[in-house]
């Protein structure tokens, strides 16, 4: 997985060091450090970072001025202010320019990581959603292979608004610092064949199918969320899962009005499995 690249603009080597330490062992990497506003602008053009942390007092210009210049170059730029000062006037001015978040020095690792997480997970922010999705896709394909011994022939994904079931759907709610839902959806035939592979038997009752597909979904969700919780680190930002519900029926629409979701389809020798993952953003 590619790391998310961060540019630090701060004239204090000590502060640069604190921010670097705060991002250590996370999915973020510091791709550059600038000690002046003009160097920050030069490095921004050159490195095209995913995120920028900006100090407000720079030797050659005001930090918010520098933010505005960066956002003129790249209107989609994601900038957070990290400074000793954090008052209403700074927040209002910064927000008007397009700054995403404000942190006071000394910035705490958990606060910065959660702030970054919320920025990249912002609604409509494809990069953020894609990022969470990667954990789910990894757990989905790995567990198909590990638990059934079958190969995953191909994996496709598409962004969609509502899901229409193929016969058997397992829904698990996501709650905590992020809210959403994961759903596994298969046709009844694929569910039966898949359960045979999971259990290693030739005959399966409907009850076995419901239980097995439900537990399989629970495992994928558990693995994915554990990985995401490792990234979020602190307990108060933890994501939790609700128990699975099973929907049985064809052509059933599953709608979450506030959610845009991604459907991932894994093709196997016995047919396709569909996993749908959606988030509504942080609390």
């Amino acid at each position: 997985m590619n790391k998310i690249r961060v540019l630090i603009v701060d004239d204090s080597p000590f502060s640069q060091r604190l921010i670097k330490d705060a991002l250590k062992e996370s999915k973020y990497e510091v791709c550059g450090c600038a000690g002046t506003g003009s160097d920050g602008i030069r490095q921004y053009r050159e490195l095209q970072p995913d995120l920028v942390t900006m100090d407000l007092t720079l030797p050659d210009m005001d930090g918010l001025e520098c933010c505005r210049e960066l956002l003129t170059i790249d209107p989609a730029g994601k900038i957070v202010v990290v400074s000793a000062m954090k008052d209403e006037a700074i927040i209002n001015r910064g927000t008007a320019i397009g700054v995403k978040a404000f942190f006071q020095k000394p910035v705490k690792s958990e606060a910065l990581l959660l702030g970054f997480e919320q920025i990249i997970a912002e609604k409509g922010n494809e990069a953020g959603q894609q990022h969470f999705l990667e954990y789910f896709i990894a757990a989905f394909t790995k567990n198909i292979i590990d638990m059934t011994g079958m190969d995953v022939l191909s994996v496709d994904h598409s962004k969609i608004q509502s899901v229409v079931s193929h016969g058997l759907g397992v829904v698990i709610g996501i709650t905590g610092s992020q809210q959403g839902r994961i759903m596994l959806d298969v046709s009844m035939e694929v569910a039966q064949e898949f359960t045979k592979k999971l259990l290693g038997t030739d005959v399966v009752a409907d009850e076995d199918v419901y239980n097995s597909i439900s537990e399989f979904t629970n495992i994928i969700a558990g693995h994915s969320i554990s990985e995401i919780n490792n990234v979020l680190k602190a307990k108060e930002f933890e994501i939790r899962l609700t128990p699975p519900s099973i929907i049985i029926g064809e052509s059933i629409a599953i709608i979450n009005p506030k959610m845009t979701s991604n459907t991932v389809t894994a093709k196997t020798a016995i047919g396709s499995l569909h996993m749908n993952v959606g988030f509504v953003g942080g609390k």
Binding site: V171, G173, I174, R181, M183, G249, S251, A253
Partner: peptide
């Protein structure tokens, strides 16, 4: 609590 999932259709059941 999780966000609600609205399920709409004919002849379906849930566990």
């Amino acid at each position: 609590i999780s966000p609600p999932s609205l399920v709409v259709g004919e002849n379906f059941k849930l566990k």
